[in-house]
Design a protein around this nucleic acid. Sequence first.
DNA 1: TCAAAGTTACGAATCCATTCGTAGGTGTCA
DNA 2: TGACACCTACGAATGGATTCGTAACTTTGA
Lengths: 130, 130
Amino acid sequence: MCPDPIRPSDGELAILSVLWRRGPSTVREVHTELAQERDLGYTTVLKLMQIMADKGLVTRDASAMTHVYRAARDQEPTQAFLVQDLVRRAFAGSAKDLMVRALESQTATGEELDEIQRLLDAARRKAEAP
Amino acid sequence: MCPDPIRPSDGELAILSVLWRRGPSTVREVHTELAQERDLGYTTVLKLMQIMADKGLVTRDASAMTHVYRAARDQEPTQAFLVQDLVRRAFAGSAKDLMVRALESQTATGEELDEIQRLLDAARRKAEAP
DNA sequence: TCAAAGTTACGAATCCATTCGTAGGTGTCA
DNA sequence: TGACACCTACGAATGGATTCGTAACTTTGA
């Protein structure tokens, strides 16, 4: 479900996001979602999803005429990979610096801050008492 | 110093990182740094830096024969932009979720956790008493 | 039945990042 | 002075992402 992590391109990530949110979907469904954001032809999405199937980023059920696509990678490890990748490329490996930027430039709600606090506590416990 | 933010490519970001760390540098100096990591021709770095100058990502002093390049964007707003970009593309706009992934997948030291705690406190103060 | 709508397959064009070779100019030093 | 090292400029090749048009097939509904 999560083979050799490859950084998905912008278009691929947009499609994966739809599949993660909607679950297994047809090209038509994915295109309908993406077309709300930006102008995009149907066959453009189709072609991209076919390429993604070749790459192994998605699988598809071709038993019916209208194929059903499914993300071949879970969302969480992919997100983790992308964060680590950005940390390495833009933050010299310092995840702390990334969080600094995220906290600075984000107008987080109090609830979100509370949740981050809980995660921080958990990370601290894990760090201090392995 | 930070005009219309454009997402720098991988190569461009690598060069910007060197310029941020070293300050104004020559192509030779940047190439020496980058060549330690991966095999890379001198003219490859030169060409990329020339393109970056055309794009406005760097400026250069051509008064001497050996040109001196300088990052045209500060590091912090560029990092902030990249984080926001990733939040939008891979985390549906939730900076909190990005921080969750960063905390989960990172083996942060106690000191780093303490610093994140301080930043979190500051963000909370700013959120509760604007 | 048969035209319209929907679907996949696929080639091709385009754009961009990346890489490098070559040409030509400039400085250095023996 | 003259060979050598270093510099910039620039064209070109490569590869990948993206986009779309067209062809061919299937389903549907009047």
